[in-house]
Design a protein around this nucleic acid. Structure first.
Lengths: 260, 260
DNA sequence: GGGCTTCCTTGATCTGGATCAAAAGGTCTA
DNA sequence: TAGACCTTTTGATCCAGATCAAGGAAGCCC
């Protein structure tokens, strides 16, 4: 996945909090500059954000925020993949969102979140202190407008996922998931209509996202391989050989509901 | 469900469009005044809304908006229940939202919606012309703030529903649905901890909302009846005899994730 | 009242995906 | 180079809920 490397030389690192202050990292050069919460900000607004932002990094598997915990930071995902998940009393869990670069964590006007946030790969976040950011939002229409757009995008994605969870077969779920990965990582290896990319999740995590078990995920992925829709170079890295065929397996109509 | 009756005497009715202009209906007396999109508006702002609003009514079963159709109106639900639903290529459908009084339809900055909206009971909407409303939102922070809150509430509800659709058993789904109805209709008949209310949906529609079949819905509702959790006076009207027991059947933990 | 239609119930059977179980790769450490 | 620990694959079995199939019950229109 879209991994971004920053040099380590000039970092002022607070190891206990994973906080990096990288004086070299300017918002204007940020890889997610034009899709994140700051997308609509002009140079002056960006300068303010630049001055209050802090990078934090998390290792794959690290918890980022817990449900119900007061929100100290709001953040944009700069690199890596994080997941949102909810849990039932007896421990069954369901992922309710996948955060890819440019997605935003935390909401203005909410003191806490209703789900756990976990790093599924190594993750870099661009963080803003909750209260500082809230104040900024109040006098920056470009920020609040963009926050609204992001919230509505998430709502559309959540509703597409409800259709998937409620009505799709295991095969359709897997095909939809892979198609989503292709769409959300357009920038990666493409050769003709062959798209090469990596699964950002383990079989177990995919199962968790799709409301399946890991065994079913494994069987369906291998079936798509046998049928010549996918090709795996290792367990994570794969190529979509037939995008049209993949779409046929999703159960969605041609004009497609999916918004990512 | 919370039905509101308006006198018919002073209505200027355009039958073909179901448009009612009721000069007697002042926003200040509106039953959803304090929960709808206008909740934060002051008297001046309300006066503007009052002057541009139009009521429309729909019979149970009527389509309200179609997916992909350009949005002429944005609207608040004043009375009755409407549903949002999405459909797969082969016709399988899944409800992705239930709109109760005070809920809002349509989004600023979006020319169309990604799902169908249908009246499930007789419905009264308070409508605003799309462009007129957009302009108003831009210079009325109270409106845009409230729209943001409503969007975030919907997002939380959508995520709770993803957990339900992905991981809950049929029994848990039904119990969660009934509990939601109780919570969202607090104003109705309560005697001790016995809550009497009506199912706003047919068995088929409930199945559609919960990702089940109508037979399973019927069996589970009757099982809850046999076990003394619910009591039915007819097929729609019922009483919750044991709210704690109902909650135990939802699978949620005590402090509860559910936000409605 | 009788014939529609729509909604709901109940029973019998089937099946997709869960669950249980075991083994095969891969990676890391030592 | 072995051993410990993952993640993934594959096979065998099971079961919750879907599907198929008949009726009932309530409302509506002639």
């Amino acid at each position: 996945m879209l991994m971004v490397r920053y040099g380590n030389e000039n970092l002022d690192t607070d190891q206990s909090m994973n906080i990096l202050r990288d004086e070299n990292m300017q918002c204007s050069k940020c890889p997610i500059r034009h899709r994140a919460v700051c997308a609509k900000c002009d140079d002056d607004e960006l300068a303010v954000l630049n001055s209050i932002k802090v990078y934090r990094t998390f290792k794959a598997g690290d918890p980022i925020m817990w449900r119900g915990e007061p929100l100290e930071y709001l953040a944009s995902v700069v690199a890596g993949v994080a997941s949102l998940s909810k849990t039932l009393e007896d421990g069954r869990t369901q992922m309710v969102g996948l955060l890819l670069p440019s997605d935003f964590i935390g909401r203005p006007g909410r003191a806490q979140i209703e789900f756990d946030v976990t790093a599924t790969t190594d993750v870099t976040l661009c963080c803003f202190k909750h209260q500082q950011f809230e104040r900024l939002v109040d006098d920056t229409p470009h920020l609040s407008q963009r926050l609204m757009e992001l919230a509505l995008d998430e709502l559309d994605a959540a509703r597409d996922w409800m259709l998937l969870l409620g009505r799709k077969t295991a095969r359709e779920k897997i095909a939809t998931f892979v198609e989503m990965l292709v769409i959300r990582s357009r920038s990666e290896d493409v050769e003709g209509n062959r798209h090469s990319l990596a699964l950002p999740l383990t079989r177990d995590q995919i199962a968790n996202y799709l409301g399946l078990t890991l065994e079913t995920v494994s069987r369906q992925l291998n079936a798509l391989k046998k049928e010549g829709v996918l090709m795996f170079s290792d367990r994570r890295q794969f190529t979509v050989l037939d995008l049209a065929r993949l779409h046929d397996e999703t159960g969605d109509d041609a004009d497609g509901g999916m918004i990512f």
